[in-house]
């Protein structure tokens, strides 16, 4: 809804601005952006603001996952790819990276679970099935339900990379698609453990959803700790472009990193990259 309103606002502004604004050739044209579903809503909102400021520009944002964004940008199918995971070495060679922000990944439990902090070793044991009852890590006598993300999700890739686990190692009881599905699944099961974006998790917990964000090795997942680097389980939010980006592409990437749109990052619980 907010996005729609912004879109309408952008159109209205564009209509008003047409008379006295000279067409700027550097910022006219259409930008195709594809990739990470984590980034897409943020980039779409920033795109709407960009269109409002540059009436000749059209920003088209599509989701399809980080890998799709990276391959589209590499093959020239898109001007910009959005990625919420680290690029592989082969990918890095073909593309220019623009780090725009940081997102934390928080481990979440049901609110009624008395456990509020876990060590790295305990987390590995929980997710790989080594510990299958909460009693073993200081909780109640209750079976552990491991909630995992579906294949191809960048959150999953980054989570595995942090704990240095192969995909097969996770002993999942449930596999979920998006953050909301994960949060509802954990909120409905007192024995569940899962992981979501710190931003989404914090917002839901504050809203009263029955989840708890736990500390990993005494590091608490909050926007503040993600910002100042005190929370280690984070991932970079990256825009990628071909080796020779157009003027419009560069103008848009500068706009995305500009302090003027940092309020939009906060809406989604992401931390903008420092200048």
């Amino acid at each position: 809804m907010r996005r729609l309103l912004l879109g309408v606002l952008a159109l209205a502004l564009a209509a008003c601005g047409n008379g006295d604004q000279t067409a700027d050739s550097a910022t006219g044209g259409r930008l195709e952006i594809t990739g990470s579903s984590t980034l897409a809503p943020l980039i779409a909102e920033i795109g709407a603001r960009f269109e409002a400021a540059h009436p000749d520009a059209r920003i088209a944002v599509q989701t399809g996952g980080s890998s799709r964004g990276i391959s589209d940008a590499a093959e020239g199918l898109a001007d910009i790819g959005m990625s919420s995971r680290e690029l592989t070495e082969t990918e890095q060679r073909r593309l220019r990276q623009h780090r725009i922000g940081v997102d934390g990944i928080a481990v979440i439990l049901h609110r009624d679970n008395p456990v509020d902090r876990l060590s790295r070793e305990q987390l590995v044991a929980l997710f790989t099935g080594g510990v299958d009852n909460w009693q073993e890590v200081g909780g109640a006598d209750r079976a552990v339900t491991v909630v995992d993300k579906a294949d191809g999700r960048a959150t999953l890739t980054e989570f595995l990379r942090f704990f240095d686990l192969p995909r097969e190692a996770i002993a999942a009881h449930l596999i979920i698609g998006d953050n909301q599905h994960g949060i509802r699944s954990v909120a409905g099961n007192p024995g569940a453990i899962g992981y979501v974006s710190v931003g989404a998790g914090t917002v839901e917990a504050e809203r009263g959803t029955a989840i708890r964000l736990v500390a990993i090795d005494e590091q608490w997942p909050t926007l503040e700790t993600v910002r100042n680097g005190d929370y280690a389980l984070t991932r970079d939010l990256i825009l990628v472009s071909g080796a020779e980006p157009s003027a419009l592409t560069l103008a848009f990437i500068d706009f995305v990193r500009d302090a003027a749109v940092h309020d939009l990052y906060a809406d989604f619980g992401y931390v903008p990259a420092a200048e």
């Binding site: 989701t63 890998s67 579906a150 294949d151 191809g152 009881h173 596999i175 698609g177």
Partner: peptide, 30 residues
């Protein structure tokens, strides 16, 4: 349904349906 890929072995076991497989992974597959 839980979306774990395995043969159904009991009523209370999570499994994954064909439709769910497409919905969960199509957007991220190549």
């Amino acid at each position: 349904v839980g979306n774990i890929v395995r043969f159904p072995s009991g009523l209370m076991e999570p499994v994954r349906a064909l439709t769910g497989n497409i919905a969960l992974e199509m957007g991220y597959a190549s």
